[in-house]
Simulated scan of single mutants.
Amino acid sequence: MNKEEWKKSIIEGLKEVYDPEIPISIVDLGLIYDLKISDDGEVYIRVGATTPACPVTEDIAYTVEQVIKERVPAKKINVDLDLETQWTPLMMTKEGREEFKRKYGYDIVQQWAETYGIELNENKS
């Protein structure tokens, strides 16, 4: 068992799982908070939601578990649904941010930063 290969395979699969509110993958939205694989083949993943009031959070957790089952022969899978950590657009990957711009026509990360007075550390070159 190669833990890094397992992680890569799981993340690849989770890129096909989309948030119902913002149709971007949960990976690119930054909703995968933690992913651990033990030496004996157990997978732990902590997943968030864009809003704790999301009515399909349990569906997302179920889908994450199914993706992991399809991707790796894990002995045990523990999906921890974290509704305490507040999601912000600043958690998005570069790919997620670009996809959001293509779909909605504006940069949600820039808008968020301006609204809340947050300095973004980006190279403007």
Rank of each mutant, 00 (worst) to 15 (best):
R102L: 07
T51R: 01
Q66V: 15
M91G: 01
W112E: 11
M91L: 15
P23T: 15
R46G: 03
I77T: 05
I68N: 04
E98M: 11
N123M: 01
Y116N: 15
V17Y: 09
Y18A: 08
T115C: 07
D40Q: 08
E114K: 13
L31C: 10
K94F: 15
V67Y: 00
S38V: 11
E16P: 00
E12D: 15
C54R: 04
K7W: 00
D107Q: 02
D107A: 08
D28L: 03
S25I: 07
T51Q: 02
V56D: 05
C54H: 04
R102Y: 08
I60W: 05
D39N: 15
K76A: 08
Q110T: 12
E21T: 08
P23M: 15
K101P: 07
G30S: 07
E99M: 12
I118M: 12
W112A: 09
V56F: 09
K36D: 13
V56G: 07
P73F: 13
W6E: 09
E84I: 11
N123A: 13
K101Q: 09
K15F: 03
T63I: 08
T51L: 03
T51S: 14
E114F: 13
Q111D: 06
Y44P: 04
R97M: 04
D59Y: 14
M91C: 02
T50N: 03
N121I: 11
K75G: 01
N123Q: 12
T115G: 02
K103D: 00
A53F: 14
E95M: 03
K101I: 14
D34I: 03
T115F: 04
V72L: 09
K75W: 00
E84H: 02
I37F: 05
V64R: 04
T51G: 07
V109Y: 05
Y104H: 13
K103G: 04
G30A: 11
V56S: 14
K8E: 15
V109A: 01
I10M: 11
Y44H: 12
V43H: 06
D28R: 09
V79C: 08
I68E: 04
I22Y: 10
I10D: 03
E84R: 07
G30H: 06
D28I: 01
R71E: 12
V72D: 05
K69R: 15
I60N: 04
K75E: 13
L31Q: 02
W112K: 02
D28T: 03
F100N: 10
P23K: 14
T63F: 06
I68L: 10
L81T: 06
D40V: 06
Q86C: 05
D40Y: 11
D80V: 06
Q111W: 05
K94A: 10
K36C: 01
G30T: 05
G13K: 09
K76D: 12
P52R: 01
T115H: 08
E99Y: 07
L35T: 11
D39M: 10
I22M: 03
S125L: 14
